[in-house]
Design a protein around this nucleic acid. Sequence first.
DNA 1: ACCTGAACACCGTTCAAGT
DNA 2: ACCTGAACACCGTTCAAGT
Lengths: 185, 185
Amino acid sequence: MRADAKKNYELLLGIAREVVAEHGADASLRDIARRAEVGLGTLYRHFPTRDALFEALLRGGFDALGKEAVALATAESAADALVAWLRQIVAMAHAWRGVIAVMVAAIDAPDSALHASCVAMKAAGTRLLVRAQAEGTARSDIDGADLFALVGAMAWLGDQPALAPRADHLFSVIAGALLTSTSAT
Amino acid sequence: MRADAKKNYELLLGIAREVVAEHGADASLRDIARRAEVGLGTLYRHFPTRDALFEALLRGGFDALGKEAVALATAESAADALVAWLRQIVAMAHAWRGVIAVMVAAIDAPDSALHASCVAMKAAGTRLLVRAQAEGTARSDIDGADLFALVGAMAWLGDQPALAPRADHLFSVIAGALLTSTSAT
DNA sequence: ACCTGAACACCGTTCAAGT
DNA sequence: ACCTGAACACCGTTCAAGT
């Protein structure tokens, strides 16, 4: 990548971070280009699609969550590990208002720039779930797809201003429902 | 209301029903007016806001759910009544893709045309919940606001094509989490 | 190689002008 | 009273023209 291109790329990413923090996942791409004082075509050249932009914005978070899942895979309590990881992925989605809907759509769209990351997150969650199930502390009538869907639902709750105050409490309720009663958290 | 106005009102409502069924809650109002072969201003005259249009579209459903809640208030099992009603309100939201987010926003917006109906739905759910709690079959650390939020989350799940196949199963999981273990459904 | 911004096809919302 | 549609201020996306 040419030096000036690289500069624009980084600049756009920084401004996008700000604008998305302000306006959520459906922020205006035009606005981002405008604030970055860059042609609209430049934004499209670097991020040909909205998903591509989010992939770049979230890459760091995805990496961290992936590593965290690996670390938690050997934790003493598989149930606690699962819940701790769920809490983190919900928090990340919550940090990017509205992005959860984009992620959920991407999991069914192989061509989305977010597809691989979302599949990886789903797989990581599945591994933690399966381990807790093997341990006997997570209910067995749930699979990775269910878990991914519940993460979506919990993140969505946090995205709605009217519901956000309940999000933490409802996280406990839902997380509790995933665990078998002997190890309720 | 003048006869021609009334005709336009009904016409718009019918077309809106179709268009919203096709495109969900963020359907184009312009498109509705166009398909109804009516000036865009006419649509705005009858439905000054998107919420006003949805209020008109959903009024029948809200009425039915309200009556159903009254009927269920004397059902033998308060727990079953609660779950049955939850299933119905989630189904109604599901029938109008995307409308749940509008409803959730309206509950915090006293000026929304949907506000009263949403408050009524929340209150109806709360009554069924309280009765089940009194009966000892619903957990006591949940209130009406939590219930409304969970309805939102469950309806949202059904709205996402990638998650919809899991919506029924997850409804059971979440509904089960609301009940005390002695009466798991 | 990369950047720019006009062009196109859409929105939601308002409001002067018509009947 | 009611209807119409142009006008305005926005979008996302593409692409010819520039450097």
